[in-house]
Design a binder for these strands. Structure first.
Length: 779
DNA sequence: ATTAGTGGTGTTTTT
DNA sequence: CACCACTAAT
């Protein structure tokens, strides 16, 4: 092999033999405390392997120890491996742990999210990838607004074609590695979508922007097209490690396969039972295929759970056994049984919140730190009620997810100015702020601008620069152009934080928000953006690209210019929407969606809103595998808890501005009754709606204090009865309708005259029917 | 050109 | 409820 010039980008920096002596000593430390399977995984030779790692089985530890072991035993240098995760949090965690194990600088290492690494690769080879150096990244919001804009200019009625549908279509295809030209369009509609997909890509190219999926697709295409680069990266990344492998989509899998070539080893760690991103193209199928293509029998199962007490684990195991498509794996623990799970049935969502509040207070009094307690829910909208209760009680809490720092409108506005400084062709950014604050550029002017741009096939910016309707200096379009140009000039010799500060100041956003009612918070956030830039710079400004040089290629970008720093910062903002929340360090109750909780663990976990329609979510019903994915989600929720696990649900809940009546989640009866203690107090008896339809609610042995009256006739497992004469139907019941024929009741709401049921008719699908009018008869 | 108000609509999860 | 897109009034 020919030795590469330069920084020794890929060549093994150490003599393998020199490390033989240190190997045993050093690895002894690393491997200490690992169980047999873990040790086996960590010390595998250079070969591909699939590590089936159950929840709490030490997955991250194995992954990071493997990396440390490979480096410490001298098998490879830090630059010869690539490790990829899905979340920034996981990537950071990995880096932190590696730094703790090894005295090496992790900044040059290729460890990050798929999107982050692809971004890095595209920055380094933007020319080969056909991108401007300053290409910007669209988040889903940006993407959607570009699509809306596109549909508008194409004269497409967005009644007939909802922008979201097109977005979904585009992303879905990109995630399968398909360009518009490769889409099989068999009907009029999909041909139309495909045309628009092609037009969308052209528009992105014109603007120099890429969406999330494009980062991957572009990177994939770059590697498949460019043999030199492919060979370079294949030579470099001898070891490829993948975290959360069950969450990879088809394209990501192909990307990995391309990088691995025929000689490199892929060490894939995953858990098919925790695959909860199928909705965005993830395919646990990759695990089967990987075993066939690469691992070929090299499968190691990590089944010992170090996290939870046995009751919790048994509950999770029992639940997940209801899924069919599984690789098969059962977690066990050497811990004791611990406490039973606690199930609370509330009459309303408010009452549910009150109960949760009570319990959290008790736990706190018992000495459990608030940061060790997680309050989980299926969808973000559910956090409102809970937050409200917590806020009124003065209990410190922290909400993860929801609107994130870089997604706030004032931040998006500021970023739009910055994006224009870096890349004025970014039409989306221009449209966002050309008249914010107001500069007298209205709809009419914009129309002319867009028309001119479209005629000449140029960006809005170019059109704006050469437009005769420029008007008087300092105002209107001309004023805007001058502003951006001036900023571009000034930014050439300012530091990143100074650029951000100057841009915010010159943009007039602060002044604008001073006149707004609730502007104070927004101004604070704008200042926070400067702080974020300072912090970003202090941490080295993203990845260290100095090791990304490729022999025979121009060095990537112009690394140390302010513009480069700005680019990195903008990419960071798009890719890492921001763990930028106040009171990050404080001891606070942790609120998040179940999705956001993946990978975390807590002393106590409260899973709320366990109701049909919410969890499992009603939208999951249509999708194939939808219900199984919901169950995996529930599995993830349960396995977050170490010691105590609460399950709560409410009979009625305010949602979308109206009260909905729900029945208990079907997942509850899937948990063995012996593991669960019902903790309903008198509160639940008050104002109860009608029978609980948790099939287990009438089972003997349940400690149902204050249990509600239920007629004996209904006491049959699997069928909650009906006591309320105002509501003579129950969910799950077969019914007959005069017009629609036979069907099954899938949900119900309201009572008395307002009572409605949702029926899944065999012939005509889902329908809501008002009981007062619809002639429904039990069948 | 800008804003305030209205009506209609859609809603999961995230890099 | 919350976010739009559109309309009417300034």
């Amino acid at each position: 092999m020919q030795r590469l010039s330069g920084a020794g980008t890929w060549a093994l920096p150490y003599n393998r033999n020199a490390f033989v002596t240190t190997l045993s000593v050093a690895s002894g430390n690393l491997l200490e405390g690992l169980n047999e399977q873990q040790r086996l995984a960590v010390t595998l030779p250079q070969q591909s392997a699939l590590i089936l790692a159950g929840a709490g089985s030490g997955k991250t530890r194995v992954l990071t120890t493997r990396i440390a072991w490979l480096i410490q035993t001298g098998q490879i240098g830090p630059q010869s491996l690539l490790a990829v995760t899905f979340t920034n949090k996981a990537a950071r965690e990995m880096l932190t742990r590696i730094s703790a194990m090894l005295p090496i600088d992790t900044r040059g290492m290729w460890i990050g999210t798929f999107h982050g690494l692809c971004n890095r690769m595209l920055r380094a080879h933007h020319r080969d990838a056909g991108l401007p150096q300053t290409f910007q990244i669209l988040d889903s919001q940006d993407q959607l607004s570009l699509i809306k804009r596109l549909l508008r200019t194409m004269g497409v009625d967005d009644e007939k074609l909802p922008p979201r549908d097109l977005q979904y279509f585009i992303n879905g295809n990109k995630e399968h590695g398909r360009r518009a030209a490769q889409v099989d369009a068999f009907d009029e509609h999909s041909r139309r979508l495909t045309e628009l997909y092609a037009e969308y890509d052209r528009q992105c190219d014109r603007e120099g922007v890429v969406d999330f999926a494009e980062l991957l697709l572009r990177s994939f295409e770059l590697l498949s097209r460019n043999e030199v680069l492919r060979a370079h990266y294949q030579r470099r990344f001898v070891h490829i490690l993948v975290d959360e492998f069950q969450d990879t989509n088809r394209l990501q899998y192909r990307w990995l396969r391309l990088l691995a070539g025929s000689d490199n080893a892929i060490f894939a760690v995953g858990d098919d039972d925790q695959s909860i991103y199928a909705f965005r193209g993830a395919s646990a199928q990759n695990m089967f295929e990987f075993e066939r293509d690469f691992a070929r029998g090299a499968v190691i199962k990590l089944e010992q759970n170090y996290r939870s007490h046995a009751n919790i684990l048994d509950a999770a195991n029992a639940l997940i056994r209801h899924n069919h498509r599984r690789l098969g794996k059962d977690l066990w623990t050497s811990e004791g049984k611990g406490e039973p799970l606690r199930l609370y049935e509330a009459a309303t969502d408010l009452e549910e919140a009150a109960y949760i509040l009570d319990e959290v207070r008790h736990l706190r009094a018992e000495g459990v730190r608030l940061s060790e307690i997680a309050l989980l829910y299926r969808s973000n909208a559910q956090s409102r009620v809970l937050e409200h209760a917590l806020f009124n009680a003065g209990l410190p809490y922290r909400v993860y997810g929801g609107l994130r720092f870089f997604e706030r409108q004032e931040i998006k506005h500021a970023l739009a100015y910055l994006r224009l400084v870096a890349n004025p062709a970014d039409d989306g950014a221009l449209l966002r702020v050309i008249n914010l604050p107001a500069r007298g550029v209205g709809a009419r002017t914009l129309e002319q601008l867009q028309e001119a741009a479209r005629m000449r096939g140029v960006s809005l910016w170019q059109s704006a620069c050469s437009t005769p309707l420029a008007g008087k200096a300092g105002a209107g379009v001309a004023g805007f152009v001058q502003l951006i140009e001036q900023l571009q000039r000034e930014c050439r010799d300012l530091s990143l934080p100074a650029i951000v500060e100057r841009t915010i100041e010159r943009s007039g956003l602060i002044a604008y928000y001073e006149t707004e009612r609730d502007g104070a918070d927004r101004i604070e956030n704008l200042n926070e953006l400067v702080t974020a830039a300072t912090g970003f710079e202090a941490e080295g400004g993203g990845f260290d690209a100095s090791q990304d040089a490729v022999p025979g290629e121009a060095p990537p970008g112009a690394p140390d210019t302010p513009l480069h720093a700005l680019e990195s910062f903008l990419a960071h903002a798009a890719l890492e929407a921001g763990e930028h929340q106040a009171q990050a360090g404080a001891d606070a109750l942790q609120l998040m969606t179940v999705h956001a909780a993946k990978g975390l663990e807590f002393h106590t976990v409260l899973v709320s809103g366990l109701e049909e329609g919410l969890f499992p979510h009603e939208n999951s019903r249509g999708q194939d595998d939808g219900l199984e994915e919901e169950r995996r989600l529930m599995y993830v929720a349960l396995t977050r808890a170490r010691r105590r696990l609460y399950l709560t649900f409410a009979q009625s809940r305010m949602l979308h501005g109206q009260t909905r009546y729900n029945v208990a989640s079907r997942f509850l009866p899937e948990i063995p009754e012996g593991l669960v203690q019902r903790v309903n107090d008198a509160r639940a008896a008050r104002g109860s709606w009608s029978p609980s339809s948790w099939p287990g609610s009438d089972r003997a042995g349940d400690s149902m204090r204050g249990s509600r009256r239920e007629p004996a006739a209904s006491a049959r497992a699997g069928a909650g009865g009906f006591a309320d004469p105002a509501f003579p139907f129950r969910v799950g019941q077969n019914v007959m309708h005069a017009k629609f024929g036979p069907g099954v009741i899938v949900s119900a709401e309201g009572r008395g005259a307002d009572a409605r049921v949702q029926v899944n008719f065999r012939s005509s699908g889902l329908k809501w029917l008002a009981l007062e009018y619809a002639k429904l008869t039990p069948a």
